[in-house]
């Protein structure tokens, strides 16, 4: 494991912890899209099915359990915790995320490395993760109110994706035969979505500064 991968995983974990902290302590999920959170829960549930079939390391198994547990907890809080649910922007969070699920499933059935149950679901999870942030970005554009914690959550997620790309570049040059087109292309698409968002976030922040 290289430093980029470790830093990426830690950034990813912090992003989820920031979100859980916000929801658990402030009892508010204002500005958070439950659709994006449901997509992440599906991503982890389908990608980590191999938790039962292949063991990599205690670190990997532990992190998989962290991501599964945290994503399902966040969905549970937003859907079923009364105080938290009251703060949910239901009218604004209208992205049809099941359309994304269906499209990614079809794509995984068409484009994969091996046509096996676990492999197709693993590929599906990569496609879905690439676009899972879309409902969250749409919600932010609609409400136009981004609090510090939600901003930090998205910023940390973007950082995690950027670090994973550095990790792949590092592995490509240090490990023979490390070539993973599907992982790389979906990872790149996902990172570009964040970069696009940050670009416009930065522009509006700069304009606000000017107004002041």
């Amino acid at each position: 494991m290289n430093i980029f991968r470790l830093a990426g995983d830690m950034t990813h974990m912090f992003s989820v912890l920031v979100l859980l902290l916000k929801i658990h302590t402030i009892k508010s999920c204002a500005g958070v899209s439950v659709k994006t959170q449901e997509l992440y829960a599906i991503v982890f549930a389908t990608r980590y099915l191999d938790i039962f079939t292949s063991f990599v390391s205690i670190y990997n198994t532990f992190m998989k359990l962290v991501f599964l547990g945290s994503s399902f907890s966040i969905v549970w809080y937003m859907r079923y915790h009364k105080a938290v649910h009251r703060t949910y922007d239901r009218e604004q969070d209208t992205f049809r995320h099941w359309f994304l699920v269906l499209s990614c499933l079809l794509l995984a059935l068409l484009i994969h490395e091996k046509f096996t149950f676990l492999e197709v679901l693993w590929t599906f999870s990569l496609y879905l993760e690439a676009v899972a942030i879309l409902p969250q970005l749409v919600l932010l554009q609609r409400t136009r109110n981004i609090d510090n914690l939600t901003g930090q959550y998205i910023f940390l997620l973007g950082g995690y994706r950027g670090l994973y790309i550095l990790n792949w570049i590092y592995r490509y040059f240090t490990e023979p035969h490390f070539v993973h087109w599907i992982t790389w292309i979906t990872g790149l698409v996902q990172t570009l979505l964040y970069a696009d968002f940050f670009y416009y976030y930065f522009l509006s922040w700069k304009n606000n500064k000017k107004l002041n």
Partner: peptide
């Protein structure tokens, strides 16, 4: 071997 070693990532 190509896909298996990317599965050591999260």
């Amino acid at each position: 071997s190509s896909q298996s070693d990317s599965k050591d990532e999260l």
